[in-house]
Design a protein around this nucleic acid. Structure first.
Lengths: 231, 231
DNA sequence: CACGGACAGATTGTCGACATTATTGAGGAT
DNA sequence: ATCCTCAATAATGTCGACAATCTGTCCGTG
């Protein structure tokens, strides 16, 4: 059976440019949480029409990145600490399921690629390159989703991930985290390689439990030294 | 801590009427799968402007009920059999998680309401009222989501449910299904009443495994006697 | 007869204008 | 001094029109 691609090959969708740029702007922090997104201003700033901005806002609202209130406009959604933890919890549940499936279905190619990622991870850890490690981390998980071949779950997990971007760069700053994370990834890889669904699910669950812990740590850190102020 | 409401008290959102009516129309089968949704036609049919229809389509696309291709318009999305099963699988995973949480957090009010639902269910089964039973089934699960107090997961599960509506009315037609379903719900209720997270998760998982089986049965049935034809 | 290009109809994408609605600030009464 | 009223302002919601794009058909050519 042909494997379903994670992203449709051709799906540029509507209001694409405005949507992507707004999304990018929110993710990168150009638009701060709780900031009002006035359609006209955003339109001129992005160099598109108000209609496109509108479509983008509706989509981002549905996606959970902005809140849209009738007659009151749009704001960049501030993901509360509680929501961030809830998101991570759901992500853990779904990724555990995906890991289980991936263990049964992973092809030789999947395993080869995952092995490459793990090898590169070791190098990044040795070089203390946390940013590079973070990218590899994303690639590792993404590869597992592909191997699991579960379009619905993959889409949901990807959507969840984009919502909690705000805290992503905080979590990798925890001292000693990357080393432990590497070991967890190695364990997951070994389970996949052994085609052991039970073990794969369990090691993924353990990994994401650690991530949750780190997230709590990051939240506590931010609580005492916020990088932004509501305004 | 105040429990997060499942739906915000005041959030009529934008393009609300068009969105709701289109969604209703798709769910009730007025718009058939794969049917083209021409903006102008839908607008006149629903008695709203094209702009509202557009916003509704974008939202429904994000939600997965319609597909939106650039310059080629919108179609009612045909959920493939495979996707339907995937959706059910994810739903099972998330609802199992929610049941676990609900077991720990269910209040006396939650349990009283659930008990009422179960009692009513028995009466509907006795009367062979499959439709009424189906409504109660929705109420039962909804109540558990509320008790679990997990906004993110609840939203996702609700969204998933709306996507697989097409087969909903097929599954309840299976002979003897309602009786078994009732017993499964009773088991879940008992687990929640006992505040046993492990048992609640397990009985919910068992229940949804049965639902998955029934779904497969319904799909096989439709394959031999489709109620609609692509056109 | 098959194939390909051009034309016509239909539909979507985008923009601007106007109506509707919330918000803000000043002014006055208590 | 505080609160209420009400107008001014800004932003959103909606509509119609035009341009860009796609689809299907017809006709000419090989």
């Amino acid at each position: 059976m042909a494997r379903t691609p994670l992203r449709e090959p051709v799906a540029p969708e509507i209001g694409h440019t405005a949507y992507r740029r707004l999304r990018e702007g929110i993710a990168s922090g150009q638009f701060h949480p709780n900031e009002r997104l006035v359609e006209a201003s955003v339109a001129t700033r992005l160099g598109v029409g108000r209609t496109a901005v509108r479509a983008a806002l509706v989509r981002l609202d549905q996606e959970g990145l902005v809140t849209l209130e009738p007659n009151r406009g749009a704001r960049v959604r501030l993901i509360s600490d509680r929501e961030a933890l809830e998101i991570e919890e759901v992500r853990a549940t779904l990724e555990a399921m995906l890991a289980r499936r991936a263990a049964s279905r992973a092809t030789a190619t999947d395993l080869r690629d995952l092995r490459l990622v793990v090898v590169e991870m070791r190098q990044r850890v040795a070089k203390n390159d946390a940013i590079g490690y973070s990218d590899l981390n994303a690639r590792f998980h993404h590869r597992i989703w592909a191997a699991a071949d579960h379009a619905i779950a993959s889409r949901l997990v990807g959507s969840l991930k984009s919502q909690s971007i705000r805290l992503q760069y905080q979590t990798i700053l925890r001292p000693g985290r990357t080393e432990r994370s590497l070991r967890e990834h190695e364990a997951i890889f070994e389970a996949l390689k052994a085609h052991d669904p039970e073990l794969a699910e369990e090691s993924m669950r353990a990994h994401l439990a650690e991530v949750q812990e780190t997230l709590k740590w990051a939240i506590d850190g931010l609580r005492h030294a916020p990088t932004w102020l509501p305004g």
